[in-house]
Design a protein around this nucleic acid. Structure first.
Length: 833
RNA sequence: GCCGGGGUGGCGGAAUUGGCAGACGCGGCGGACUCAAAAUCCGCAGGGGAUCCCUCCCCGUGUGGGUUCAAAUCCCACCCCCGGCACCA
């Protein structure tokens, strides 16, 4: 008897995991009558063990998935492994273990961890991105993209992490440091492969409109910002006494009459020639190399002074015919626009600061409408709008109109054209590493760069490599890999030894998951179209611009290559907050890591899941609390005890009177149906499971009270209790599935509660005939009154004025007004006589 | 600097078409059970004051104003915290 009331998660959790598994109840059906729902959580990198961030991510997803299954959806809820990447290689360097072995072992272990948490995945769909059967399709996409000029090779100045010994994309540089290891990034000139994401910049921006409903606003703004579209004028000014021209981009063509100098980036290809025209090659060269040195050594971080050097040469501003000096300046970015700018110190703060420093004239050409600006009294640039002055034929125009007029004027006179610029740059995907998908290209001395023929795919990663972390990448040092024959001419040739950025794998894995039958193809198109787009995607905010932007881009590319007809991969996105402890992110170096295994061992998976869902709403950061975990464990113990007690009571209730439920039991039913309403609501809207769980706790408290104080005397009573327990277990199942299954079985439930039908509430049972509403006098709470639910204003007022405390406040006062909001409040306004 | 998000008891958090602020949980206090403790169960609890066992009053959602019968919620100004971007021409 005693044991029966003891909750022992270790006795039940594995049992149910096995039963679910052998019954295959979480399999997504490729063909089904039911409505389909694709629920995806970001798949993990197999780093060794799962951490609390994973538990949070996957517990949120699992609760939702289980709810949807109970709601009658055919739910696709897959899991797999983002298995390529640097840590595998670093582990190899440190311990001499092969990355594949290391990765596979980690996957084995982490899979068991996920299974021990009882997640409802369709494990048949599991794969790892390091499987040649996966990455070979990526190689195919790469080749098809080559044909469409969506991928190309060029030499460029790249971000290079000396520690990881590899190139980083712009998005992977955080504050000048490597996003993964934190080492300061260097600039190197290297050849590499690029994906033409800029060709999709506009579409990526425009189709964001479809995502407005389902994505957090801040993710969209971050992407918008990242793409950084701006419109303006691209023009060129001739360099005096030469044939040279300097191209520049500006968003402020309306200020073009205020140009008093030009500035070029340090790396601008014309720096040398221009300074030769000006006769100041030496000075310029010295300045350039000194500034570049500073940049690399990081001396220019925060308080960077704007510095520059006069090249001795002048540009002619064709609109004014004036000569303006050309500078080379450290604040001009080579990566943006054309690497050169027109400078208008009166109307651009940066130009203003530079002009002050080098005593360059400042000319006012935009006059604001409020307090007029005085050219000789400017303390800072005026970057706002106004009307044009000192601007020839354009003087007097509004700046917005002038932008347009000046662009058109330039176009008519062949000086420039309307142009759009993006902050977004093409995606450099070459990595000088071993543990990644090989780029399927062969270099032939005669035929040049030749794609590997499709029938020769996959280009497999060789296993017998030596990984030292020093010198060239292991593939480059592997003759059997490098040396091959040219597919065109058959002569000796060399393979590309760069591998692809691992963000390429994660840019289409959701398509592979959606397809169960992948014989000789990346995925089954029909199956993919049945599921895509992902209805709900869940993952960390840290991928707001990296993974989420690449995946959007890749989806569009695959559409244009004819693989799919989907344009956006993720309809709705939930970005969950971090799990923190002692106010900081869990990290080994901080020593504040809580290991999921420990928690599961001590309290069971259900406690871990419920705690992590209960402690905070999903998008907010979650502070880990040992005491909170204990509290949740107690809750589950109470669930165990109360349900068992009530079950005994129901089974033991013989010789009952036929009849309606008693008052207490009617009240219980009301609580039950209210709870169904509230919990269901959370699943259908915000996924704030902390609130759903608190409602379940209220219901349990009620059940406990009933168990302690009430006797079942009628069949109606028994029905009410039975309904309450049944509904409670069903609603608990998405959060704490193991205990719910066990109790479901013990209380005589049929089949698995995990796929039982989600309860539906009955509105008429929730409604009360008599309700209490608060009564205010002059806006201050003075009591409450019980009134019939359909009472009118007058009736409510008459009843309220009999409440002694209310009466006291009305005494001797004149009643000015009575405000009655049915079901909410009664407010009596009085005034002293 | 710019763009987002946020500021509610000792703590995590509820309450957003304006309508009883603090649900639920943690921690705390008191009680029951026990030889005792743990566990469990029951009860109390925003702050201050008056009253003296019946209660009653005032104050309270970052700060200061405003709109309203009524504001955590709406408007204006400001402060602080977190995240992102940061010479993007």
């Amino acid at each position: 008897m005693k044991e029966k009331f003891e909750y022992r998660p270790e006795d039940i959790e594995q049992k149910w995991q096995q039963r679910w598994d052998s019954a295959g109840i979480f399999h997504a059906e490729p063909v089904s009558e039911k409505p389909c729902f694709y629920l995806l959580e970001m798949f993990p990198y197999p780093s060794g063990r799962i951490h609390m961030g994973h538990v949070r991510n996957y517990s949120i997803g699992d609760a939702y998935a289980r709810f949807l299954m109970m709601k009658g959806y055919n739910v696709l809820h897959p899991m797999g492994w983002d298995a390529f990447g640097l840590p595998a290689e670093n582990a190899a360097i440190a311990h001499g273990e092969h990355p594949r072995v290391w990765t596979e072992r980690n996957i084995e272990y982490m899979r068991e961890q996920l299974k021990s948490l009882g997640y409802s995945y369709d494990w048949r769909r599991e794969f790892a991105t390091c499987d040649p059967e996966y990455y070979r399709w990526e190689q195919e996409f790469f080749i098809k993209m080559m044909e469409k000029d969506l991928v190309y090779r060029k030499e460029s100045l790249v971000n290079f992490c000396p520690d990881c010994n590899t190139v980083l994309a712009n998005e992977q540089v955080e504050g000048g440091c490597c996003w993964r290891c934190g080492t300061e990034v260097e600039f190197r000139r290297l050849p590499g492969w690029f994906m033409r994401i800029t060709r999709y910049a506009d579409e990526l921006l425009e189709s964001m409109e479809e995502l407005r409903e389902g994505w957090p606003e801040r993710v969209l703004t971050m992407q918008e910002h990242w793409i950084g579209k701006s419109e303006g004028l691209e023009a060129e000014f001739p360099v005096a006494d030469s044939d040279l021209k300097i191209r520049f981009f500006t968003t402020r063509p309306d200020t073009i009459f205020g140009v008093t100098f030009m500035a070029m980036a340090l790396e601008h290809p014309l720096v040398e020639e221009v300074s030769r025209v000006g006769g100041k090659e030496k000075e310029v060269q010295r300045f350039v190399s000194e500034s570049l040195r500073k940049r690399v050594s990081g001396e220019m971080d925060e308080a960077l002074e704007k510095e520059g050097v006069f090249t001795g040469a002048y540009c002619i501003n064709p609109l004014t015919g004036e000569r303006v000096p050309i500078y080379v300046a450290n604040f001009v970015l080579m990566e943006y626009g054309t690497g050169a700018i027109m400078c208008v110190p009166a109307h651009d703060q940066r130009d203003f600061e530079f002009a002050r420093r080098y005593r360059i004239p400042i000319r006012l050409v935009i006059q604001r409408k409020s307090e007029p600006l005085r050219e000789d009294k400017l303390e800072e640039a005026w970057e706002g709008g106004g009307y044009l002055v000192n601007s020839g034929r354009f003087s007097g125009m509004e700046s917005e109109a002038a932008k347009d007029a000046i662009i058109r004027y330039c176009e008519e006179n062949n000086m420039g054209k309307r142009a759009v610029n993006y902050r977004l740059k093409d995606w450099g995907i070459s990595r000088q590493r071993y543990w990644g998908a090989p780029i399927p290209v062969i270099y032939c001395d005669d035929c040049g760069t030749v794609p590997v023929p499709l029938e020769q795919l996959p280009v497999k990663l060789p296993d017998n490599v030596e990984i030292t972390g020093k010198g060239r990448s292991p593939l480059a040092a592997h003759p059997e890999f490098v040396n091959t024959t040219c597919p065109r001419c058959g002569r000796a040739a060399r393979r590309e030894t760069d591998t692809m950025d691992t963000f390429v794998e994660s840019s289409w894995y959701f398509l592979r998951f959606a397809s169960l039958n992948n014989e000789n193809r990346p995925f089954d198109t029909d199956e993919v179209h049945r599921w895509m787009p992902v209805d709900q995607y869940i993952g960390g905010i840290e991928h707001a611009v990296l993974h989420l932007l690449y995946a959007r881009f890749f989806t569009k590319v695959l559409r244009d290559l004819g693989y799919i007809n989907v344009s956006e991969p993720f309809k709705r996105l939930l970005t969950q907050g971090m799990v923190i402890k002692d106010g900081a992110k869990m990290s080994k170096s901080r020593g504040n890591v809580v290991d999921p295994d420990d928690i599961i061992k001590r309290y069971g998976a259900d406690t871990a899941r419920v705690f992590i869902l209960f402690a905070a709403p999903p998008e907010r950061d979650l502070e880990w609390s040992e005491a909170g975990v204990e509290g949740v464990y107690r809750f589950l113990q109470r669930v165990w005890r109360v349900v068992n007690v009530l079950n005994d009571r129901v089974l033991g209730s013989i010789n009952l009177e036929e009849g309606e439920a008693g008052k207490e039991f009617v009240n219980l039913r009301r609580t039950v149906h209210k709870t169904i309403k509230e919990v269901t609501e959370e699943f259908l809207t915000r996924l704030h499971f902390n609130k759903a769980l608190s409602h379940l706790m209220v219901l349990l408290n009620e059940l406990n009270r009933i168990a302690e104080t009430q006797k079942i005397t009628t069949t109606g009573d028994r029905e009410a209790v039975h309904e309450a327990v049944e509904c409670f277990l069903k609603m608990l199942a998405p959060f704490a599935p193991h205990i719910a299954e066990e109790l479901w079985e013990r209380t005589g439930g049929k089949g698995f509660v995990s796929i039982a039908e989600w309860p539906v509430y009955n509105e008429s049972l929730i409604k009360e005939e008599v309700i209490k509403i608060p009564v205010q006098v002059n806006g201050k709470l003075r009591g409450e009154v019980e009134i019939p639910v359909n009472a009118g204003k007058d009736e409510a007022f008459e009843m309220a004025r009999t409440v002694p405390r209310v009466q006291r406040h009305l005494d001797g006062k004149e009643i000015v007004k009575v405000i009655f909001v049915p079901g909410k409040i009664l407010n009596i306004i009085v005034k002293s006589q």
